[in-house]
């Protein structure tokens, strides 16, 4: 047990950890997305420079855990600007752990998430509990997001 704790402490120390946002590699993000769970995952791609993304963040923040949905926020801010992403979330009182994707090969990143993604953000990927994927290149209002979660958590 002590050994496991030590290992997790080391791993934890190694990830660039910045109060709520950790920098993540594309492969590791895919591992998280592919992890089978009983609940749906709602993965939102955003950036602090993207107006419509920031506007819809509170809705995602509010609906974390609704119908057991797991909301995963993935910032596409540049790694050098992780502080901006951090303060954007803080100002919107989003306290749960989220990620900043450390991948600048966009032509690899974008189709790996969805063939339907042209690259515009905001973009949201829903993974149902039977691992089916649904992709949306659009903004969501809070009622729309609520409906989305209800629709896919059946």
């Amino acid at each position: 047990m002590k050994f496991i704790l030590a290992i997790s402490a080391i791993t934890f120390g190694l990830t660039v950890h910045s109060q709520g946002i950790s920098s993540i590699q594309l492969d590791d993000l895919h591992k998280i997305l592919n992890q089978p769970t009983e609940n749906i995952k709602v993965v939102n791609f955003w950036a602090s420079w993207c107006g419509p993304c920031v506007k819809e963040l509170p809705a995602f923040g509010k609906l974390q855990g609704y119908k057991n949905a797991e909301i995963i926020l993935v910032s596409l801010d540049f790694k050098e600007e992780i502080e901006k992403a951090k303060s954007t979330l803080k100002r919107r009182e989003i306290g749960f752990e989220s990620y900043l994707l450390d991948e600048t090969n966009y032509d690899k990143l974008i189709p790996s998430i969805s063939e339907d993604w042209t690259g515009a953000i905001p973009a949201t990927l829903v993974i149902s509990n039977n691992q089916k994927r649904f992709f949306y290149e659009k903004s969501f209002t809070e009622p729309e997001l609520l409906e989305l979660i209800e629709q896919h958590s059946k």
């Binding site: 107006g51 690259g119 290149e137």
Partner: peptide
């Protein structure tokens, strides 16, 4: 064709 991130129109 090559994709990039951008702002939604």
């Amino acid at each position: 064709e090559k994709r990039a991130i951008g702002c939604t129109i």
